[in-house]
Computed example of a mutant assay.
Amino acid sequence: MTEPHILVVDDARDIREPLGTYLKKHGHRVSLAPDAAVARETIANGAIDLVVLDVMMPGEDGLSLCRWLTGRGGPPVILLTAMADDADRIVGLELGADDYVVKPFNPRELLARIRAVLRRVPPTPLATPTGRRRFAGFVHDPNARTLAHEERGEIVDLTSAESRLLTVFLDRPRAVLTRDQLLDLTAGREAKPYDRAIDNQVSRLRRKIEPDPKRPTIIITEWGGGYRLAADVTALDEGDPAAAPAPSPAAGEET
């Protein structure tokens, strides 16, 4: 069984937090946002499978955020609307919302509608970058799933999971990424709540790139926060000789 990641966007704390608790109790991973700005940041930093979105919010309203979401290709949206707002419901559906629920609502009905939308919307495939990139004396090739050490002339093989994890860090150098964000960005809807596999993957990756894995200087632990790639990242052109693999491979772990 997989656990979709739901984002609840509502400025009313007495709706947002109990709804988040209810959805978690029924097997979903949940993020909460009190406004559109926090919602945009949450979506940018993690793979969200569905957004439950209040229409009436101060600042940027739900219809504007819905337009932005559908314009960039998802995730699917269920609108929360006031009973009298027929026009909002119609406009929301015209903007591309997948469903709507009228306030006050029964959480069981909303849960059923979430499940129905997710059944008909396929999971968003995870992006697979193809370009080689340099960081901390290494060149990462996501196609070959290898790391070439520029000074030692070694090639280190990566498992597919390690290569995906490294790609996520290289996409966001020096940004602190929580375990939930790393799970979302590497596993998407397949991620399970409270999964600690990320810690194991980080440890395995450190053994391959850190001079001293017990005292890491490349992938840093942010206590209470997550992990951070403490290195600059440079994209390499296909014709760059530094992007070519080194000649003498070193043993690596199998997939």
Rank of each mutant, 00 (worst) to 15 (best):
P211F: 03
R120L: 01
D141F: 07
A148V: 04
L205P: 04
P173F: 03
E151T: 14
L95N: 10
R89T: 06
G74H: 03
V202K: 05
R164E: 01
H140V: 05
E151R: 15
A116G: 07
P129E: 02
T81M: 06
R113K: 14
P75N: 08
L126S: 00
A191Y: 11
P107L: 10
T178M: 09
R145M: 11
P173T: 11
V156E: 11
E162L: 12
A82D: 12
D157Q: 13
L182Q: 08
L126I: 12
L80I: 08
E150V: 10
E94K: 15
R115N: 07
H140N: 02
L118T: 02
N106A: 13
A148L: 00
L205V: 06
G96Q: 09
G74W: 03
L93R: 08
D85L: 13
R207S: 10
R89Q: 14
S160K: 11
G131D: 08
T178G: 15
R152E: 15
P123L: 09
D171K: 07
S163Y: 05
L111H: 02
V101T: 13
R152Q: 14
T128V: 14
S160Y: 09
L182M: 13
D195S: 14
V101G: 11
R132G: 04
V102F: 10
G131V: 01
E210T: 01
P76C: 05
G131E: 04
R134V: 01
E151H: 13
L111P: 01
L177S: 10
D85T: 12
P76K: 06
P75A: 08
E154A: 15
K192F: 04
R89C: 14
E210V: 01
R115S: 04
T146K: 07
G73Q: 10
G137W: 05
A84C: 07
R113A: 02
V168Y: 04
A191V: 13
L182R: 07
I114A: 03
S203K: 15
P129C: 04
K103I: 12
A187D: 04
T146H: 04
L166V: 03
D171V: 01
P125D: 06
V139W: 13
R179T: 15
P104K: 13
V156S: 09
D141W: 06
R172Y: 11
V176G: 00
L177D: 09
V168D: 10
F135T: 05
R189V: 15
E154Y: 07
E150S: 11
F135S: 03
P211E: 04
L79M: 09
L205M: 08
T159W: 06
A97V: 06
D99R: 13
S203Y: 05
K103H: 11
P104N: 13
A191C: 09
E150I: 11
A112Y: 01
A82N: 12
A187N: 04
R189M: 10
R134Y: 08
D171S: 12
L165Y: 10
D86S: 10
R174L: 01
G92E: 06
K103M: 11
L79H: 01
R132F: 00
R132V: 01
E94M: 14
